[in-house]
């Protein structure tokens, strides 16, 4: 049924209201598939459990590097936070350093069988997110996270730990909630 369009002042017929939308559908680019997929050379599209295990071992090759590098980053960040406790001008830099560290640990901990570190780093990342600085108590909360991460790494606590470690995670999360404000 046709109707009067008050906006344009025109009589609109039903067929006019359905205009073709400008959508372009472009066929899939098959160049990669044509070049790489075959039946002779390479890795099966569906890897066997054994092949997957071997591939996982390749990932785990960097585990020692992770422990060494993150251990150093944790120590450096701890020093930065401690310095910032006594020097307000260094607090913004300490927050940035803590944020970078939290992201790295959160991203990689689980990959190298340290999911507990990922959990704690996530708590720390949430705590420092959108902050440009932190007060003394907030810096101490950050420091406690760093210390916990270091203990897990030094003790090579893989997996999710025992009830003690899980209680530590819960306590850290509570601390972050308690000292959440002010967020500057």
């Amino acid at each position: 049924m046709s109707h009067f369009d008050w906006g344009s002042g025109a009589v609109v017929k039903p067929e006019d209201s359905k205009k073709k939308k400008n959508v372009q559908i472009i066929p899939a680019q098959t160049d990669l598939k044509r070049r790489a997929v075959n039946f002779i050379k390479g890795f099966d599209i569906n890897l066997s459990p054994k092949q997957l295990e071997e591939l996982e071992q390749v990932v785990q090759r960097s585990s020692d590097t992770f422990v060494r590098e993150i251990g150093k980053d944790l120590m450096d960040c701890r020093k930065t936070v401690i310095t910032a406790l006594g020097d307000k001008s260094k607090r913004p830099a300490a927050v940035v350093a803590a944020s970078d560290l939290a992201y790295s640990v959160k991203a990689l901990g689980g990959t190298f069988q340290y999911p507990l570190m990922t959990q704690i780093a996530k708590s720390m990342e949430t705590f420092v997110a959108d902050r440009t600085t932190a007060n003394e108590k907030q810096l101490l909360v950050i420091q406690l996270h760093i210390d916990s991460l270091y203990v897990i790494l030094a003790g090579r606590v893989t997996g999710f730990g025992t009830t003690v470690e899980q209680a530590t995670v819960a306590a850290l999360t509570k601390l972050t909630e308690r000292y959440e404000a002010p967020r500057e």
């Binding site: 990669l32 997929v37 039946f39 050379k41 390479g42 099966d44 790295s104 990689l108």
Partner: peptide, 20 residues
């Protein structure tokens, strides 16, 4: 089984994190 020959493909990794 169909296979993938990865030697035919070029990759670019954009990541500031050395380990990742």
């Amino acid at each position: 089984n169909a296979k993938i020959d990865f030697s035919k493909i070029s990759f670019l990794i954009v990541d500031g994190d050395k380990i990742s």
